[in-house]
């Protein structure tokens, strides 16, 4: 990964906002069903210039074949392999549904949209995986009340790979 530098933590850590722009984070909203939720997170990726509008259809397709629910009230919608050429740049979006959205029988409060052609987003997903193993921090993410709080929770710890 990044070369060690004298200004250690700042230089080595991933800048979350490069991938997850504050404008792509929406808190405290609602969606009538999972499809509406995917259209919302997908629309944010399109608005960020990260993917063509058709990418959102690939995200819905993917959700029909295998749910992207990962546990702890979190789903990570993304396109299919066939939809990869619709991606312009790597980006993430984040939407919080405090009332929850029915996700093929699971309840989803946090939806993280992914458009990724490369591996730039891997450290952030690794951080998410770690965060969700910790019940307290998973709850903090579900209950986050500010964009800064979301960004802070999603920032990879510099000491882990």
């Amino acid at each position: 990964m990044a070369e060690p530098t004298e200004t250690a933590t700042e230089e080595q850590s991933v800048v979350v906002t490069d991938l997850l722009a504050p404008a792509s984070i929406v808190l405290g909203t609602t969606a009538s069903d999972w499809e509406a939720a995917v259209r919302l997170v997908g629309g944010l990726l399109v608005a960020a210039g990260a993917a063509a509008p058709e990418y959102v259809d690939r995200m819905i397709e993917r959700e029909h074949s295998v749910s992207t629910f990962v546990g702890e009230g979190v789903a990570i919608p993304h396109g299919t392999l066939a939809g990869k050429d619709l991606i312009v740049k790597d980006a993430l979006s984040f939407v919080q549904f405090p009332e929850g959205v029915d996700w093929h029988g699971d309840r989803v409060v946090i939806c993280i949209g992914i458009a990724a052609g490369g591996n730039g987003h891997v450290p952030i997903l690794a951080q998410l995986a770690e965060l969700l193993m910790d019940e307290e921090r998973a709850a903090a993410l579900r209950n986050a009340s500010s964009i800064d709080e979301v960004i802070e929770l999603m920032t990879p710890d510099p000491e882990t790979d």
Binding site: V70, L81, G83, A116, H121, V122, A126
Partner: peptide
Amino acid sequence: CDAGMGSSVM
């Protein structure tokens, strides 16, 4: 996973 960009990464 299908695309290798989401769930398999986690």
